[in-house]
């Protein structure tokens, strides 16, 4: 009988497909506190997915609490400004929402920050926050650490467009793609060059970013590995802007592995801001050529 079992058991293990895609792509749904600042009896608590600031898109949930009682305080004019200081002292920022929106359902102030770099010795991130209670404005700031995003499906890219402007594209969803048609969500932002002279630091007009309106992001997903011969998929949809300001499209992943989302970004008039068409030829053994505008994902 034991001999039979030896004979019957498989020589080569089957791929544990479900656990494999679970380990490759960690998924985070829970908002946890990423940092907190105490200011004059108030605590500003900032929550992000998984309680970590990542390079790329971060949804920000901010609460102001009474430090003593830990109760939510009704505040107004909540502002949020991330600033990165480089080794030479230069200060820059990244796409973010300055005035946060109050979400009554969750009793928090909602915004986002698209961190362009991870924290290291030459890049220190600091958050500048303010809020108003009883007509009194409170200001606070806090050093934070921006970590590498290990989920490549939340990658981002920044580039200078053909119009000379600085643009940012950050992937927001899906966190965990499937072999399927996945709803692809991205944020597209640009840097607004300051027109006025420098005010008191931190002056948000010196660090101004906005969501790009009415653009189109043409999508051509391909597998870049030489072994995949520039494999692509069907039924993909270009990204267009939705009501929430984000860009929505469809990416169809036909199998697991490395994928490249090749983009061509068009402005409201259909003019190419960035990106090149990629070859559709099947080229096994050769690394797939990428558009000049692309984001790599791993699925």
């Amino acid at each position: 009988m034991s001999l039979l079992l030896i004979v019957v058991s498989c020589t080569l293990d089957k791929t544990d497909y479900e656990s494999e895609i679970n380990t490759v792509v960690p998924e985070h749904y829970e908002f946890k506190q990423a940092t907190a600042v105490n200011k004059d009896g108030y605590t500003i608590s900032i929550e992000t997915l998984n309680g970590i600031f990542y390079q790329g898109y971060n949804e920000i949930r901010l609460k102001v609490l009474d430090t003593q009682t830990n109760e939510n305080i009704n505040v107004s004019d909540v502002t949020f400004l991330p600033v990165m200081t480089k080794a030479d002292g230069n200060k820059t920022s990244c796409p973010y929402l300055y005035t946060l929106d109050y979400k009554p359902d969750g009793q928090y102030y909602s915004g986002y920050s698209v961190f362009t770099d991870i924290s290291h010795t030459a890049a220190n991130w600091k958050l500048y926050l303010s809020f108003t209670v009883n007509k009194k404005m409170y200001k606070a700031n806090k050093d934070v650490t921006v970590n590498e995003q290990t989920n490549k499906n939340l990658n981002m890219t920044s580039f200078t467009g053909n119009d000379g402007e600085q643009y940012y594209i950050a992937l927001i969803a899906p966190q965990k793609p499937k072999v399927a048609e996945n709803k692809l969500v991205a944020g597209i932002y640009k840097y607004n060059k300051p027109v006025t002279s420098t005010g008191d630091f931190p002056d948000p007009s010196q660090f101004s970013y906005s969501e790009v309106k009415g653009y189109t992001l043409q999508l051509d997903p391909r597998m870049p590995e030489p072994s995949m011969g520039n494999h692509s998929s069907l039924n993909n949809q270009d990204l267009i802007q939705g009501n929430n300001g984000l860009y929505h499209g469809v990416v169809n992943y036909t199998m697991t592995g490395n994928w490249t989302l090749n983009f061509i970004m068009l402005d409201q008039n259909g003019k190419i801001i960035k990106g090149t068409k990629v070859s559709t030829d099947f080229t096994p053994g050769v690394p797939g050529a990428k558009s000049e505008l692309f984001i790599d994902t791993l699925f």
Binding site: Y17, M223, E225, S227, M255, G257, N258
Partner: peptide, 12 residues
Amino acid sequence: MYPQDRKNRTMF
């Protein structure tokens, strides 16, 4: 599928 060095799987 594997690249030529066969160390890493590139697709499944």
